[in-house]
Design a binder for these strands. Structure first.
Lengths: 345, 345
DNA sequence: CTGTTAGCGCTTTCAC
DNA sequence: GTGAAAGCGCTAACAG
């Protein structure tokens, strides 16, 4: 016998002979079908358990054309926001009897189609894309082969759920304006350009309503990730002749980077400068100072995404194809009134 | 026609009739078998592509008893260290033609068996467990049904890879001692108790070698996660009559929490207190101050885990069943000499 | 209530 | 080189 390690796993057939019934009966018993005598059912179930029977999801999938598996394509699982979102999706899916198949493109847009393709090959029942940079053409292609897909945070896609970036950003900026700030900067992102631009647009609109003019979004290379970018931009702002008194950031990690720049310069938040983030990742609440930020309702986002996807899977056209949830401004300690003196201390 | 949305996906059979050959030939052509005439092969491949054929991984899995899928069971995908590790595992797996199936127990030990069971039902070729709190009995049970499993950071398990917590922790403490600290605290974790204890043991040994006596590990409820715990412990330390001048933390997020407590008290790091973390998550480098920490070589860990698992899958007994990698001390800016004055300023 | 049988889509002998 | 046919483990008619 060659290095065969795997003791062939026991099948429904094995259980059938052991129980002295037909294979079909076992199948029914295991499925709790009312069509099998309660006693036989119990006996078979006990036997199956005792024999260590583990149903083959793939065989079942082949036979029923339903795998009870949802694919999730993410750009980067190590991104705090995405990871937290995936956790919510997992919870929602599990609750409805689905398992997640994860596929991530390693932050490389070119690999996204491959990532999604893997999911299709695995015959997932549906796909949730948590990568705002996907190509729409790809999504419709996927839809056409019968695998429904919904994308998160990409409002123009065929089926989507997301947070209203523009309105939320505007809220954030209004909060800053209400505190008395007039020189407010925006630190954006180059990778998820569209999303960042929506947030910038909200920032712009908030300022415009008070007759203030926005500055163009600040950004820097993504080397080192968001925190590094936030830090670099923060440092840039500080060496300006007249630095802003507040800054609105693309996300929480960017904000944390910006705050790092302030700390390193011996400045305090919010006394010397106010900072607001976006996403409300779990760290935001516990950071020092606790971050004022826009909370995305991840749990609800996940729930809606899964629900909509299940409707699609069941062949129903969902009531609403594009859902936009409001963001919520969470005021914590990283924002306050601008410093009295003009300029920096 | 009832609400059928899914246009039946096209099969190898469809391609066969379109190409005017038998189904077997298509199968061979698609598999690049040399047994089919090069020209036919190309023709079939082109046709398949054109028809939008997507192979069914589950059908193939059923037929070959190999799914080219690796299961990863994690405690919490939103944990920075775990997420970064999963990213590495994914990269390693992908490189070898495997896809990851993710299963997470939502930080609930009782759900861990279920999480692993899902993986078995999906007939993954092997399992990587990234949850140091799994039960060994569970693992051997899994092994017996022919699904090899390896666990990360749990040295006593049958097959494992991990970082040498004790030695690494000792290094961290020695670094602190070398800087001149004598009052050093340890902030631990209650959830991953064993792992935390190993780190504490390293801390203890480091102190003992210089004739200093350790304090028992500090900890607090996990409400709010690691950062909150670190913060609570940091606050506790500060109100001590004679606070330590340095603190070694279970992980980076804990350290960030502790630093938060210091900042909130108007103290500086490392001038007033040195802090060292563990894991070297990506945030550590960009935090202010950049964290001195123990880096776990996640990429290598992932590589070894995947390699060992593949050996197991291929029926070979791996050369080494239990691998312990050294941690690496990364000195950044959160550690420095103790303050001159005794006690706090 | 239970058994028989025909697939699900693919790989893989075994023939030709 | 290519085709026919068996079978992977399971479900779902269809019969009794």
């Amino acid at each position: 016998m060659p290095g065969a390690s795997g003791s062939r796993s026991i099948t429904i057939q094995d259980v059938a002979v052991a129980a002295g019934v037909s294979l079909a009966t076992v199948s029914r018993a295991l499925a709790d079908s009312p069509r099998v005598k309660p006693e036989t059912r119990r006996r078979i179930q006990a036997l199956a358990k005792e024999m260590g029977y583990t149903p083959s999801a793939i065989a079942r999938g082949l036979a029923t054309k339903r795998t009870w598996t949802l694919g999730v394509a993410v750009r980067d699982i190590a991104d705090a926001y995405i990871a937290e979102l995936v956790r919510c999706i997992d919870r929602q899916a599990l609750q409805r009897g689905y398992t997640l198949l994860l596929s991530h493109s390693g932050d490389d847009p070119k690999r996204e189609p491959a990532a999604i393709n893997i999911l299709r090959q695995q015959r997932v029942d549906g796909i949730i894309v948590a990568d705002p940079s996907v190509d729409d053409a790809l999504l419709t292609a996927v839809g056409e082969d019968g695998t429904p897909a919904i994308v998160i945070d990409r409002p123009q896609s065929p089926y989507s759920v997301g947070t209203d970036n523009l309105a939320a950003a505007q809220m954030a900026v209004e909060h800053l304006l209400d505190l008395g700030h007039t020189r407010i900067a925006y630190i954006g992102d180059t990778r998820n350009w569209q999303e960042s631009e929506e947030r910038w647009a909200g920032y712009e609109r908030g300022l415009a309503q008070r007759g203030l003019s926005p500055s163009p979004p600040l950004t820097s290379g993504r080397g080192g990730g968001w925190t590094a970018m936030g830090r670099a931009c923060g440092e840039y702002l500080l060496q300006l002749p007249e630095p802003p008194t507040a800054v609105f950031c693309y996300n929480d990690l960017t904000a944390i980077g910006a705050i790092g720049a302030l700390y390193a310069a011996g400045l305090r938040v919010p006394e010397d400068m106010s900072v607001v983030g976006y996403d409300d990742i779990s760290l935001a609440r516990h950071f020092e100072p606790p971050l004022t930020t826009i909370a995305q309702d991840k749990e609800r986002l996940a729930e809606l995404a899964v629900e909509m996807l299940l409707e699609l899977i069941n062949g129903q056209e969902p009531a609403r194809k594009r859902l936009l949830l409001p963001g919520q401004l969470v005021v914590r300690a990283s924002t306050g009134p601008p410093p009295r003196s003009t300029g920096m201390p």
